[in-house]
């Protein structure tokens, strides 16, 4: 476990039996956690629950089988993380109190859900989260402010400015990203090996 206090902790999904409406965003790995959530909750919970599925990397058949397993919750399938978050923002724009937000899957997905929630006045602490699947990260370059998605190595080359970045555990909920800092500023002649660290 990280000793860095800004590193988020994902306690796992638990149903809010009082919520009037449950909105869940997940990816394929996270969908397994949602299936377990529905199994843990009472029978009426699923009827109040809508799921936005990011189907990135899934074939049509696989998506369909996930939709089937999440029934009777309603499921909307989107092509990936970006359209899933866009759909979430639409839902939140007209939502009222009594809505409970959940996120399950990779860290970039959870981070994006928490971020979209905060932009719509939902306290990050009230979002219920569970990490599943890949450990890949979203990294913000502290120098050029560019975002590098799906980072699995440390260090990593910034997708925008090309600097070699040390990926720190320091995390910003507002940016939904880890911090990347130039790793060889003091040793520009050295080029450390990219080690796979977040798979």
């Amino acid at each position: 476990m990280s000793t860095i206090k800004s590193r988020p902790i994902y306690p796992g999904l638990s149903p809010d039996p009082n919520a009037r409406r449950n909105v869940v965003v997940c990816d394929a790995a996270g969908a397994e956690a949602v299936v377990e959530l529905l199994a843990r909750a009472d029978g009426e919970f699923a009827g109040r629950t809508s799921v936005v599925l990011s189907s990135e990397g899934l074939f049509g058949k696989e998506s369909e089988s996930i939709v089937e397993r999440l029934k009777p919750a309603t499921v909307e399938t989107t092509a990936g993380l970006v359209p899933a978050i866009d759909r979430l923002k639409e839902i939140l724009a007209s939502a009222t109190m009594g809505l409970r937000l959940y996120a399950a899957g990779s860290e970039p997905l959870i981070g994006s859900v928490v971020q979209a929630g905060a932009e719509n006045f939902i306290d990050p602490l009230s979002v219920r989260t569970e990490h599943r699947g890949s450990l890949k990260r979203r990294v913000q370059c502290v120098h050029c402010k560019g975002m590098t998605e799906n980072v699995t190595t440390n260090p990593v080359k910034c997708a925008q400015c090309g600097l070699l970045l040390l990926v720190r555990d320091h995390y910003s909920k507002r940016l939904a990203a880890f911090q990347g800092v130039c790793i060889n500023a003091e040793t520009p002649d050295e080029s450390p090996e990219l080690k796979v660290e977040f798979q």
Binding site: K5, R7, R168, Y171, S172, K173
Partner: peptide, 23 residues
């Protein structure tokens, strides 16, 4: 330390990188 990265953080979060003192 970066204000742009840390803005919006709570007291524990923005002090996160300081070694030893948390423990």
């Amino acid at each position: 330390w970066s204000l742009d990265f840390d803005v919006g953080m709570n007291f524990f979060e923005w002090h996160a990188p300081v070694p030893l003192a948390h423990q």
